[in-house]
Nucleic acid binder design. Structure first.
Lengths: 348, 348
DNA sequence: CTGTTAGCGCATTCAG
DNA sequence: CTGAATGCGCTAACAG
């Protein structure tokens, strides 16, 4: 009878898709599951002989602990979430990749998610990320308002880091480029090369989120030139968007002899449009971008750009999450700004 | 005494980071947790008045069901994993983005992960993905051997889809470009433009994974020209890698008048190197790539390339996972190849 | 050093 | 239509 029961048990355990559990390992070795659990946790108080046999069984059964079950009881999943409106953006991909490297070293995993604008303006996606059990979240908050972010951070009970935009919100660590310094450097450079008619190509701005980059650039231009606001066009941050915006800008302001684009992708689109309009770069008109993506090096001429240290910023974000996870909550509203570097190439 | 206990309970529940559970909702409404559970599952047999009150309480408490707890009992997490050696690759990012859109529509989530080559050649990363509870996995298997993939698929008990390389492995659905057709189209095009000295710039190949693209190209060249194998160089699939490989190729084979690159990024690197060497494109030498990334349209001249329908392929991959999750296991070793499209621009 | 008991948050039986 | 009991796989707190 006992044999029969065991047989049934074995059959049901050989079922499709069923992976071995801690109990299977315990039974094979002839110990309790607690002992197996201790071996997994590298707990010191286990007899080395027992430890050896358990590890053997783990290998033999190809056992992997179920991280969800573990997370349910430890209340920590060793997983961070990272969210952006567009995961195809190279600046974001670079940051992801950098965080991934660090995460692996610390035994963490990353859940990458694209923000769904339709779902309560992205907050819905973040909530789902939470329900997935992540221990902290990095947000590229291009489109989330400070109010939304504050409400979310307040209710989520986990460390939240925003990147790419300075957010002075209690409980949120903000990691961003020093936009003031970047704008100053760029405008100084353009003025030094004799270009004084500067136009801007900006990211399509959601009215509730005026972009800091835009404000910093306008401010730098006003102080540098002693003039009113520079002309600008907004469109989606793609090559096509850059083409459209540049065409519109040059049509409405034919005297513009320098263009600062929201990022390198937009700048590259602008270069195409300008070439089609017969403008020589940089003789007739200069073009600069932000981010320093690799593709900017292959345009003709190569693109001058503001480089940010993606890896270092990714590392800072990861550390902020780790600290927050360790101490319960992050330092209130800490803002880290990073120094930009101007990479002068052929378009200026 | 009862009051005191309740107070303690309330205090502990107001603890940091503690999110409301199904029990909190049940208590607020004055029903059992099963009733709340039924409302969540849109179970029909709940009184509409009860349902209304429960939904109210859910909104009031800002309750979100814990997906890990749910997964533990349902044995399904509504989560798919997607893994690649390089998440910065635009072809991969595009696929991710496409799958993300579909996943959201179906209530699924995506866990994106970068394969760790040091960790048992990437298999270790995949195992961790499994322990995270994903219901299926998409792998960009550039560097995994068929043997490793077969062993993994066999033991994992969940649907596995590979993309980008034809893998004829039982239990794995393989989605890839029709490399034979692509190679034929490309070589025909080059021959039609009078280029007969073709060189190849390939991805740095791991010896255990001879790449199908390489073989298909060599085969097409041999049949088209009636000649021996074309010269080739291998390097990492980046702009810098493309520059290096192209420089080496042109040095060792100065008569080459057409270059087929592993992908657009490599092709763009090659263009830079060729320009530095004083070769005119396409007059002296033609260049073509694969993938049809947006940046290929910005080079001077714009890059001729083999375009794959990323969105359609992403959709196919997602459907394969869904079917596999529904029926228990995927069709044995199904291989889906997709027709390439030649986008002729300025470099040929 | 090891086993026992309890419970994480939820869904799935079964009773009413 | 609703409630009570049971367990998913694992770890924490206590016993021994």
């Amino acid at each position: 009878m006992t044999e029969e029961n065991e047989l049934i048990e074995i059959v049901s355990k050989t079922n499709i898709a069923r992976r071995p559990t801690i109990i299977d390992v315990a039974e094979l070795v002839g110990v309790s599951r607690q002992t197996v659990s201790r071996v997994l946790a590298e707990h010191p108080r286990v007899a080395s002989e027992t430890r050896r046999r358990v590890k053997e069984a783990i290998v033999e059964l190809d056992f992997r602990p179920n991280r969800m079950a573990r997370a349910l009881v430890t209340q920590t999943s060793m997983t961070f979430g990272i969210a952006s409106v567009d995961i195809r953006n190279l600046h974001f991909a670079e940051t992801c990749s950098g965080m991934q490297t660090l995460a692996r070293q610390q035994g963490y995993h990353l859940v990458v998610t694209e923000l769904d604008l339709d779902d309560a303006g992205g907050i819905g996606t973040l909530e789902t990320l939470l329900s997935l059990g992540v221990d902290g979240i990095v947000i590229f908050p291009n489109i989330l308002t400070d109010a939304d972010l504050a409400a979310f951070a307040d209710s989520c009970g986990r460390p939240v880091v925003t990147m790419g935009r300075v957010t002075r919100i209690p409980g949120i660590v903000s990691i961003a480029l020093d936009e003031t310094a970047a704008a100053g450097t760029l405008v100084d450079h353009l003025l030094a090369t004799g270009k004084r008619r500067i136009g801007l190509l900006m990211n399509q701005m959601f009215p509730q989120v005026p972009h800091e980059r835009y404000r910093a650039l306008q401010h730098a231009i006003e102080t540098g030139l002693g003039e009113d606001a520079a002309p600008f066009e907004s469109d989606e941050p793609t090559i096509e968007g850059g083409k459209r915006a540049a065409a519109r800008l040059v049509r409405s302001h034919p005297d513009v002899n320098a263009i600062i684009a929201f990022n390198d992708t937009v700048a590259m689109g602008a270069m195409v449009a300008l070439r089609e309009l017969g403008r020589r770069i940089p003789a007739d008109i200069s073009v600069v971008g932000y981010d320093g993506i690799p593709y900017g090096a292959v345009t003709e001429p190569p693109l001058t750009t503001i480089v940010q240290d993606n890896r270092a910023m990714a590392e800072a974000a990861f550390r902020a999450l780790l600290d927050g996870a360790a101490y319960g909550s992050p330092p209130s509203g800490e803002v880290q700004t990073w120094k930009p570097e101007l990479l002068i190439r052929g378009t200026t």
